[in-house]
Design a protein around this nucleic acid. Structure first.
Length: 433
DNA sequence: TCTGGGGTCCTAGGACCC
DNA sequence: TCTGGGGTCCTAGGACCC
């Protein structure tokens, strides 16, 4: 194996240390590294509280590991600060952080990966800001800390994969919060790793299958017969092989096109739902929510999918945990059309099982430019429907979602009103400081 | 891991076409 | 209709990420 053909770029993968918890500390004029604080979401369906973030001190002082996710696992200690999430504030801070990153990169070289991670390709720009990539990383850390009070962790690599592994495996565990990987150091630092699922893109399932093939370390993976890997995993096998050798030919400025974009919403219900009317009420409400999001993004969906999760009792009885069905539809972003398609899907597959989880997803998206009329309804009816949805959006944008709701949302089992202020299922909080 | 939520990509089998 | 072959699209399910 030779790396002669590989591009040697300078890539940073930057993540915010305990992001939500740190933002909350700063908002309270507390030191994010020295304050024991957790962010806990307490919704009706979180079964007593879901921990979204834990500050480093809270982890250390109370021995909380990353997988502590429930309120019941928290120690009873008044010194531990427990606060509700403010998702809108975190989104705002994320935008501010990325605005800082933009200053250090050329156009198209900064790519937000999630609410608290971004990838920066500084190959073309790092020399403007310091004597070495490491020095530039320090400078970015200082800038973010000075301007926002937050601490960022940085993985440095010669491609995005190396930067990601450097971040996950090294940067998070060093005092300077910076980790580095290169083609030259990759084998020495990565091959000894035996916890395969600690490596990005390898989950518990793939780790187990690799174990069955006799792979106990990344070294083994790198030296497994490529054909065998391909036979076992298909293209994932090829990917795993590249992973084991630290190869990733992604170039950030060449924007990759998402193959199958989708827009959807889901919810775990606050209790078991047994009656058809109640379940369909929620299916309809989520359909309306997704339709509104499609309109907001100026998209129409040509495909809609409904996933239903049974209650645990029903799952055991059925020997399956639920079902998922989809249908191709004439492209739409109208409440009534989307909801009707979802209810049809539901009725075609539901057989009386008690339900706990409802998920709606839409795909085959196309730009919403103009109205495609169908031949089956009067033109006037179709135009009215579209006007109605537009008016609905305008009123809600101006006065808030709950100022105008469908009457069915007032019936038993409906969840739209109680979830109106949520962002990603958690409290949006106040967007203003 | 007895229910958080929003995404993307891959696979396998079946339908259908020429 | 006792076995053609190559290709595309559809669908449900699985896996992974933050």
């Amino acid at each position: 194996m030779t790396y002669a053909a590989e591009a040697h770029r300078v890539v940073f993968l930057i993540d915010n240390k305990s992001f939500y918890a740190s933002v909350e500390c700063v908002a309270r004029h507390l030191n994010p590294l020295k304050t024991p604080l957790v962010v806990m979401s307490e919704q009706e369906n979180t079964n007593g509280g879901l921990i979204l973030a834990t500050s480093p001190t809270a982890k250390k002082r109370y021995g909380l590991q990353a997988n502590v996710s429930r309120q019941r696992d928290l120690p009873q200690d008044p010194r531990l600060i427990v606060v509700p999430p403010r998702m809108n504030l975190y989104i705002k801070r994320n935008l501010a952080i990325n605005a800082i990153f933009q200053r250090f990169t050329a156009g198209g070289d900064c790519w937000p990966y999630s609410i608290d991670e971004s990838v920066l390709d500084v190959t073309r720009s790092w020399r403007l800001f310091g004597s070495s990539p490491y020095a530039v990383a320090r400078r970015i850390q200082d800038t973010v800390h000075r301007e926002l009070g937050l601490y960022v962790t940085i993985g440095i690599g010669e491609n995005p994969l190396q930067a990601k592994l450097a971040l996950d495996l090294f940067a998070k565990h060093t005092p300077d919060l910076i980790g580095t990987l290169s083609y030259a150091t990759f084998a020495a630092r990565i091959w000894p790793i035996t916890e395969l699922d600690s490596i990005w893109s390898i989950g518990a399932r793939i780790a187990r299958r690799l174990n069955r093939l006799g792979v106990t370390s990344v070294y083994d993976l790198a030296h497994l017969d490529q054909a065998a890997l391909k036979a076992e995993f298909g293209v994932i096998g090829t990917q795993l092989y590249a992973l084991a050798w630290g190869i990733d030919r992604t170039v950030l400025s060449r924007r990759h096109r998402v193959k199958s974009p989708s827009i959807g919403n889901s919810q775990v219900l606050p209790r078991d739902y047994a009656t058809q009317a109640e379940i369909e009420r929620v299916v309809t409400e989520i359909g309306q929510q997704v339709a509104a999001r499609l309109r907001h993004h100026h998209q129409k969906a040509g495909r809609v999918s409904l996933s239903i999760g049974f209650s645990y009792a029903a799952s055991e009885e059925e020997k399956r945990t639920g079902f998922s069905h989809s249908a191709t539809i004439p492209p739409t972003n109208q409440d009534a059309e989307l909801s009707a398609a979802l209810v049809r899907l539901f009725r075609s597959a539901w057989d009386g099982q008690v339900v706990r989880n409802v998920a709606v997803s839409t795909g085959h998206l196309s730009p919403d430019c103009g109205e495609q009329l169908n031949l089956l309804e009067p033109v006037r009816t179709q135009l009215h429907r579209s006007d109605l949805n537009r008016a609905l959006d305008a009123i809600r944008t101006r006065f808030g979602f709950t100022r105008l709701v469908y009457a069915t949302s007032l019936l038993q089992g409906a969840t739209a009103i109680s979830r109106a202020g949520l962002v990603g299922g958690h409290n949006g909080g106040n967007a203003y400081d």
